[in-house]
Write a protein that binds this DNA or RNA. Structure first.
Length: 466
RNA sequence: GUUCCCAUCGUCUAGAGGCCUAGGACAUUACCCUUUCACGGUAAGUACCGGGGUUCGAAUCCCCGUGGGAACGCCA
């Protein structure tokens, strides 16, 4: 295959959401797989809605996911001269023409068409045609530039996801390529850029399928090669509903905040709409090695947070303890919890890392090691009974005599229980409540060891004398 | 309304005419492990939208229907 060049071309009107992230991921992976070039292009020609904050949000999202581009980011607003030149060329070549129809006239036309239940479209009244007499151009009046779309035949392409798609040219109208203020429009900029940037594969959302025939016609009018297209179907929300700013669409950065690891999000997204046999868990290197356009699903996919959670749990278990420790320190510090003078955070993490599915859950789970817990009255009443307190008092004595090492600590708990004629849980659960403020925890001997003698004894005392 | 797209377990998916009495994963349920809660292990239930063709044979190919979606902007 010739040098592969793909691009991700978001418009900076909001954050990078999950759908955009997947599009970027697939474009990126495809380029990487073939040793090609991945280009980032910011489509900011809509001055009204584009913001620098949104540009930054997109950049941040891609950076977090580790999707780095080889060229760009290019900004369409900085290429205005180029667009203008191409428009002039097309006007001169007769592949585009000036249209003086006013907005009012256009609106009226559309209204009529709608009444007649027709597809709303431009009627070609200013389109030059051999033997056709155009109205005289109003001098000084504003005009738009329209592309002279072929009127007969079909446009078609072999979509790498959806297969062959054909459109009758008769279905297409002469779309605007330059507004009355002279600024170029989306379909036009895309074509010029894809041509200038020598894009070989356009991987994008399938909401662009209907733009594709227009873009192909334009490309052909420009004498440019037509890239391959791969249209990805959309991602639905967890509830099966379409994602929108109003409903369910969240920034990928929100996932970071919620305690997801980028490798989990990447892995999840990779698997959403693409497959490699039965493989579920794989690194991004593996993904790049395996990725192809042939195994992309043509139908829409519903986002499933539970599966993401499962993957995230997996990656938390795999995470480097030093990194995880630092990350936890940061997250706890955000809640005003100091970890520096408490138990070694890495040892605490080892106890909890396989019991949670997000970093936030992990932070919640371990915070009792650093902050004295206040078990709810109900918990106290249920677990810190007189019998239990008696056992804890005995245990306190036994523990204080212990070498602080897991096997010996476990023995101490067991012996205390049997000496009091109690079952193991009858001691271990009150002990958990005393130490951590909750009746469940990892293996109690490990908790004792990691929490450390001083803290353990203090917390038991607090319960006994509190 | 017109054009285009899509259709396998609740969800993500495997499946390129016989390997499919349809496989894997998440979720669910049961059991095992166990000092609790998890992790882990084992097992179970659950799907080819409907109807016609083509074929010796169809989840796979074709047509129709139904359902869902997208696009029809001087937005991208």
């Amino acid at each position: 295959m010739a040098q592969v060049r793909t691009r991700f071309a978001p418009s900076p009107t909001g954050f990078l959401h999950i759908g955009g992230a997947r599009t970027a991921l697939f474009s990126w992976a495809f380029a990487r797989h073939y040793g090609g070039t991945f280009i980032l292009r910011i489509e900011d020609t809509d001055l009204e809605r584009s913001t620098p904050e949104a540009v930054q949000a997109i950049l941040d999202g891609m950076h977090w996911l580790g999707l780095s581009c080889d060229e760009g980011p290019f900004y369409q607003t900085r290429r205005m001269e180029r667009y203008k030149q191409v428009i002039d060329d097309m006007l001169a070549a007769g592949t585009a023409y000036r249209c003086y129809m006013t907005r009012e006239e256009l609106d009226a036309l559309r209204a009529e068409q709608e009444i007649r239940k027709e597809k709303p479209r431009y009627d070609g009244r200013w389109r030059p045609e051999a033997g056709k007499i155009l109205p005289p151009s109003p001098v000084g009046a504003p005009f738009v530039v329209r592309f002279r779309n072929p009127t007969t035949g079909v446009v078609s392409w072999d979509d790498r996801v959806k297969g062959r798609i054909e459109f009758e040219n008769a279905e297409l109208d002469d779309f605007i390529i330059a507004r009355s203020d002279g600024s170029p429009t989306y379909n036009f900029c895309v074509v010029v850029d894809d041509r200038d940037m020598a894009i070989t594969h356009v991987i994008r959302g399938d909401d662009h399928v209907n733009n594709t025939p227009r873009q192909i016609n334009l490309l052909q009018a420009l004498g440019a090669p037509v890239p391959r297209y791969a249209h990805l179907s959309m991602i639905l929300g967890d509830d099966g509903q379409k994602l929108s700013k109003r409903h369910g669409a969240v920034s990928v950065m929100q996932y970071e905040e919620d305690g997801y690891l980028p490798e989990a999000v990447l892995n999840y997204l990779a698997r959403l709409g693409w497959s490699h046999g039965d493989d579920e868990i794989f690194s991004s290197e593996q993904f790049v090695a395996w990725f192809d356009l042939d195994h992309i699903t043509a139908s829409a996919a519903q986002f499933n947070t539970e599966k993401l959670n499962w993957l995230n749990a997996h990656y938390i278990r795999q995470a480097d303890p030093h990194w995880l420790g630092a990350e936890m320190g940061k997250r706890l510090a955000c809640n005003g919890i100091v970890t520096a003078d408490g138990p070694d955070i890495r040892r605490v993490l080892v106890l909890y890392r396989d019991r949670v599915s997000t970093l936030n859950e992990l932070a919640d789970a371990i915070h009792s090691f650093y902050v004295v817990p206040h078990p709810a009255a109900e918990l106290r009443a249920q677990h810190l009974t007189e019998t239990a307190l008696g056992a804890l008092a005995a245990l306190r004595e036994n523990l204080s005599a212990c070498v602080w090492q897991v096997a010996e600590l476990g023995q101490a708990v067991k012996q205390t229980a049997s000496a009091a004629g109690l079952k193991m849980p009858q001691v271990a659960i009150p002990l958990r409540v005393a130490l951590l403020g909750m009746p469940q925890s990892p293996s109690i001997d490990s908790v004792l060891e990691v929490m450390g003698r001083e803290r353990v004894l203090q917390r038991i005392d607090a319960v006994l004398h509190g």
